[in-house]
């Protein structure tokens, strides 16, 4: 049986891991290569690196980080943040990434998903979506935010995800703008809506604070994987603890 993946996320800027709340108030959380090796040894099923600086200089630093990490970490690596072109993606993949995630660039130029899927395969193409709740008259909905969550676009998140999968996205990295960084639980209405709508894996992101939150994202939100940053960075829970807890609650997990 396919197991659910537990994915620590490393937000990196200028070669350091950082963590903030709703994309702001960043705090230093360590060296990315050391952190990655630590998570690998602990049993992480995959690692995600998000370059939140995303300046040209920061990107060079990120390429180096990916190159070093891929020499000592033998689980899949996904890299995103500021990737704007096929050549940006190729650089990360050549450095050792297995997947690239694109967000703002895909909204501006959806053909990037199609081109990337044709060149690298759709399994390489992760669509990252920052979805912010909007309160409609009848029911809740979500809009897409770009630029690291800073810019609401008015684009309907579900419509966009559906279109992006048709274009070539092979996986969805779904972050709740409202829940991210608050450690009060994932937006499982969002996770479930997307997971039931598309035929590609969904990684739930944003809001993990307790073991129960991770369980809910998988059991209630129907996600294929959970991504978390804070609870792992500050050693609130080890990956082993998370896995034992989830396995105990009947979730298929790689031990």
């Amino acid at each position: 049986m396919l197991t659910k993946r537990i994915i620590p996320c490393l937000d990196v800027t200028a070669g350091r891991v950082v963590k903030g709340t709703s994309f702001t108030n960043l705090r230093d959380a360590g060296d990315p290569v050391e952190q990655a090796a630590f998570y690998y040894q602990e049993g992480a099923d995959e690692l995600v690196f998000l370059d939140i600086g995303a300046t040209p200089e920061a990107r060079d630093t990120m390429v180096e980080v990916v190159r070093k990490v891929s020499k000592q970490v033998f689980v899949p690596l996904c890299v995103g943040g500021g990737l704007r072109s096929i050549s940006d993606m190729r650089r990360m993949l050549l450095a050792g990434a297995d997947k690239v995630s694109i967000n703002t660039a895909a909204v501006h130029k959806p053909e990037l998903l199609k081109e990337g899927a044709a060149i690298f395969g759709r399994q390489c193409m992760v669509l990252a979506v920052d979805a912010k709740r909007i309160r409609g008259k009848d029911k809740a909905g979500w809009e897409v935010c770009t630029h690291g969550g800073r810019r609401p676009t008015g684009i309907d998140a579900l419509e966009w995800i559906k279109q992006a999968v048709e274009m070539g996205a092979g996986e969805i990295l779904l972050t709740s703008w409202d829940a991210d960084g608050h450690q009060a639980g994932y937006d499982n209405e969002l996770n479930r809506a997307v997971s039931e709508m598309v035929n590609v894996p969904v990684i739930a992101s944003g809001g993990a604070g307790t073991l129960e939150h991770l369980y809910e994202a998988l059991a209630v939100g129907k996600a294929d994987a959970v991504l978390a940053a804070s609870i792992f960075h500050y050693r609130e829970y080890s990956i082993k603890q998370v896995k034992e807890y989830l396995a105990g609650r009947g979730i298929p997990i790689r031990s």
Binding site: M1, T3, K4, D45, R122, E171, V200, P201, D224
Partner: peptide, 10 residues
């Protein structure tokens, strides 16, 4: 089922 089959399996 979701395609691709992506992740850890026995």
């Amino acid at each position: 089922l979701k395609i691709p089959h992506m992740g850890w399996n026995q």
